[in-house]
Amino acid sequence: MYTAEFDYKKVSSVADALAALKAHPDAKLLAGGHSLIPTMKLRLASPSALIDVSSIPGLKGIRLEGDVIVIGAMTTHRDIEHSSLLKDKCPILPEQAALIGDPMVRNKGTIGGSLAHADPAADYPASMLALGAKMKIESSSGARVVTADDFFVGMFQTAVAEGEMLTEIHIPANTKSSAYEKFAHPASRYAIVGVAVVKHADGTTRAALTGAGASAVRLPKLEAGSISSLVSAADLLSDNFASAEYRAHLVDVMAKKALARV
């Protein structure tokens, strides 16, 4: 039950967080903790220090800035699920948030923590790609903005480099219609396959897949109008519950269901 020992530092600004990261190179940032703490309890991760960034003012909340929705990285799944701004301007996120974990997980877990963890079976990465979201990443040398397409690098790997931190998610407020269809693992309830489809006001459609492979990817064939054989099984994960072949099939099924709703 116990994690290995670690030093705990609670910070109240991004600058302090980045300074602490510099001081403890193998430290981890602690947001909601719902990806990190279970891993630490199984002693699969034993960082020497945790930097608690959950209560940095300004990193929590959802606001509209012109035609961009800005979501602070420390915004909880619950806040996303119940946000009237998002329900109006970006309904795929509340739809997805309601499918994450369970109510207790949603009450603590954060979008920033989830995205930075980049679990291949997490839900948000699909919508981030389909929405054309951008991630604001800060470091002691300043801030940079990365598109979702460049953010998800691989399994548990993102564009966030050592010494950096994800602080905001920027989403164009141009959703015309959207849908997320998830086929969940019956035990973990993580996505075996999750397909997000977003029709944008400019007439384009973006679609993306999570769960099936090592990291979330766009679905170019679907975006081009195809509805079958959207992905090759060769590119997908295979495990005890779902083979790559089955996942490939589910991608088509979920895509069809999502398309029917947009």
Partner: peptide, 9 residues
């Protein structure tokens, strides 16, 4: 709010 007290310090 309900939380899992085994998943926070």
């Amino acid at each position: 709010m309900a939380v899992k007290s085994c998943t926070m310090f």
